[in-house]
């Protein structure tokens, strides 16, 4: 290996970061304690980024458990981008199959909620649709128009009451009194100002919003809501969504029969 072989140097440095103390030998005479400085900084920066995003998981597991788990994740799935503010999308899925997390099967779900909260917090800002515009919609157009949803809106659905458990951990009591139940729950996150709001929603509202997220027409979204709950009230769903500021635009769907 030549000292002037650039590519070999970078390959060797990566091997050294991965733990091979002798990988850099042409360029570095061991022992080189400075290598540990780089190794530590790289892992702890990734752990710190995850700790900022997955604040509820830190509360649930305690700081030591969290940092150990985050360190294992960071070694297996290092950041791909210097914008660490966006790091951690794979952490919830990884937790689901992380053996030490198996006793607390709700952790992966709660991590998913932390991630969605963070996505809502950092998503693009947008101005809200004037509710008056909705009242001018012609009934016969509902099959060909859709409502643009706020870019900060995120939805999640669970088979158990993980959203309630997560919400309880946002209070000063830190969810200590919450019992996990096998009841399906749906939650939404939205941010129309400085603060992310999190709300449990009923199945019909959830189905309505999910349909709009797929850019389906208002009529199709209403059918989805009714399929989820035949007793639901569409005006009630719309008023609730307007009150939360979920709509930003009215859009014509191209190529639909009118």
């Amino acid at each position: 290996m030549s000292l002037h072989d650039e590519r070999s140097f970078f390959d060797a440095f990566d091997a050294a970061l991965a733990g091979d103390d002798l990988a850099l030998v042409p360029w570095l005479t061991p022992p080189a304690p400075g290598l540990a400085v780089y190794r530590n900084t790289i892992v702890s920066a990734a752990i710190d980024a995850l700790a900022a995003t997955f604040a509820t998981i830190r509360l649930m597991t305690g700081e030591d458990w969290f940092r150990a788990a985050a360190g294992e994740f960071a070694r297996a799935h290092p950041p791909i981008d210097p914008a660490l503010v966006n790091y951690g999308a794979d952490f919830p899925g990884w937790l689901a199959s992380f053996p030490p997390a198996q006793d607390a099967h709700y952790l992966a779900g709660a991590a998913r909620l932390d991630w969605l909260w963070w996505q809502s917090w950092s998503a693009a800002d947008a101005s809200l649709l004037d509710p008056a515009a909705l009242s001018t919609l012609p009934a016969e157009g509902l099959a060909s128009i859709t409502l643009g949803l706020h870019p900060t809106l995120h939805l999640a659905s669970f088979e158990a009451s993980i959203p309630s458990l997560w919400l309880a951990h946002q209070s000063p009591l830190r969810g200590e009194a919450h019992q996990l139940a096998d009841a399906p729950e749906q939650i939404l996150f939205v941010r129309t100002g400085p603060h992310v709001q999190s709300h449990l929603v009923d199945p019909a509202t959830f189905a309505f919003l999910e349909s709009l997220q797929r850019r389906e027409a208002v009529l199709a979204a209403a059918e989805c809501a009714l399929a989820a709950d035949p007793e639901c009230s569409l005006p009630h769903i719309l008023t609730g969504a307007i009150a939360l500021g979920l709509f930003t635009t009215i859009n014509l769907i191209p190529d639909t029969p009118r």
């Binding site: 002037h4 650039e6 440095f13 990566d14 920066a45 290092p78 791909i80 210097p82």
Partner: peptide, 20 residues
């Protein structure tokens, strides 16, 4: 340097200061 092969190493890493 910090980024290579699709991985970001969050540190400021050294290199040999060669002509190339």
């Amino acid at each position: 340097w910090s980024r290579r092969g699709g991985v970001y190493r969050s540190d400021l890493l050294p290199f040999p200061r060669t002509s190339s």
